[in-house]
Design a protein around this nucleic acid. Structure first.
Lengths: 129, 129
DNA sequence: TTTGTTGCAAAGGGTTTGCAGGAGA
DNA sequence: TCTCCTGCAAACCCTTTGCAACAAA
């Protein structure tokens, strides 16, 4: 894959972010290397294929993107107040999946867990009021 | 809420379905009571507010809708082959959430688990080939 | 020089809105 | 009759596509 200022800009934006970014947000954080939206979409598609990023479809139907830290199975917790998102390295679902396979008859091959709550900062901000 | 043929048609379509339906699909299953897409969107919004239906945003960015069977916390398993979706009445995530709250510092308030696999029918269909 | 990338504009496709006409109750 | 609801058309908005110009290597 060729190295271009646009690609560097996209990765820089994702690396600096602590939460999923929409394509618009990525564009506005690319500074000098800002590019058109189609370019960002096309490159993110490649990055996802390479395992460098993942996409998250929000309830507002907008696709957002995060840099991948690990390439093994993981989940995410997101703060509902500030939007910050953290990767969770362990998966506590596996045991209950066995149980579910027996009771439902389904053979489970894949799952996705999204966790939401309040990060430490927002919890203490909440207490102060 | 007023009773109209369109509303009955939408609920009938959802009741008869064993998988999430897009608005197009609902429309084509409403028979005599078929209505325009905006009407379906507007009514589904009401139904969701009333707790009669839930919406599921697929990876294809299309919103789909299912009739609610229970109004307490639950998850879904969907067959990746035939699309059939079943409600799962138990949640095995709660224990690992406690563990996660300690390790991450987040206070988890909400979570969403999506399970995918093969239903019994599709498993046996697979074996025959 | 070759071939992969970008930019621009336009198309696409699902969802939402505005408003006038219609039908529950 | 009085509202609420529906239909239609158009607007919206995010995302994708086509194609010519451009720039990595």
């Amino acid at each position: 894959m060729r190295q271009t200022p646009q690609r560097e800009g996209i990765l820089r934006a994702l690396n600096a972010a602590d939460r999923p970014l929409s394509v618009e947000e990525i564009s506005s954080r690319m500074g000098e290397d800002r590019s058109g939206l189609p370019t960002i979409y096309r490159n993110l598609e490649r990055f996802i294929k390479e395992g460098w990023a993942e996409n998250i479809l929000g309830q507002d139907q907008v696709m957002r993107f995060v840099r991948c830290n690990t390439n093994h199975h993981h989940h995410h917790v997101q703060c509902e107040s500030c939007g910050r998102m953290v990767e969770v390295d362990f998966c506590g679902v596996e045991d209950s999946i066995r149980q579910l396979e027996i009771s439902s008859g389904f053979r489970i091959t894949r799952h996705q867990l999204s966790l939401f709550g309040l990060c430490t900062d927002c919890q203490s901000a909440e207490k102060r009021h």
